[in-house]
Amino acid sequence: MELKRNFKSLIVWTVAVGLSMFVILISYPLVDDVFDQMPQEFIEIVDIFGGIPRNLIEYFAMEGGMIFQLTCALYATLLGFGTITKEEREKSTDLIYTLPVARKTFFLSKMTAGFIQITAFMLGNLIFIVLGIVIINDYASFAKLLLFALLSWVLLMIFVCFGTLLGTLSKKNIKQLNAMAIPLPLYIVSLIASLTDNKWLDALKYLTPYTFSDPLVVLKNGYTFEVVNFLTFTVLAIISFFIAYRTFVKKEFAN
């Protein structure tokens, strides 16, 4: 039922994000020509932000990867938040949560549906991205792209858990858009960390889950897996999941 109810929004988000990535990818030949004609001073500035891309995947890392992660993270958090609060917002709790179904079953089926949707969303986007690659016919670093997709999928699972926790702890009238308060600030933190040489500010990268799947690191620069960051946020997501579970099971539904 959850999947059926969220199908339209899944399609809209997948097509919107996937199409954007596709357009970015197929514009690579144009941009590549522009890079070729760039003055040296400008190339030095571009180097601060990761340097000139050598192939399509590197170009995607610079121009599409971060936007891709941010929009996907927004979708995942909104999905986690919305899935768990939908009945309260629509005031259908009276009829739905009085069915002979245990609360834990409701929770687990909602979360399963959420995880399935995120997986479908990632696969859908990957299809658009691969289509762009096929059209441009530049398969360099393709394996890295698959690794990036896998890490992004984990990132989205983490955001689903954070969104779910926020949803279960929220009062019933809170707007779903408030869930954006999770992925946006964390993204800005990761942006600040990536743009600085200051070692203190650089340490900010450990406060955001975007670090372990940073597209520039995974797809372009020499890849080093941020184990600490990955484990920290995976554990935090698991803890969020269990707190959300316990809160939901004990939650009261007043008028």
């Binding site: 629509e90 009276d94 009829l95 069915l99």
Partner: peptide, 20 residues
């Protein structure tokens, strides 16, 4: 508990359902 709810028919004062 939810187990009892199998034997209960409940009609709330406001009936809100899945609108779509």
């Amino acid at each position: 508990s939810h187990r009892n709810n199998r034997r209960i028919g409940y009609l709330p004062s406001e009936v809100n359902l899945y609108s779509e």
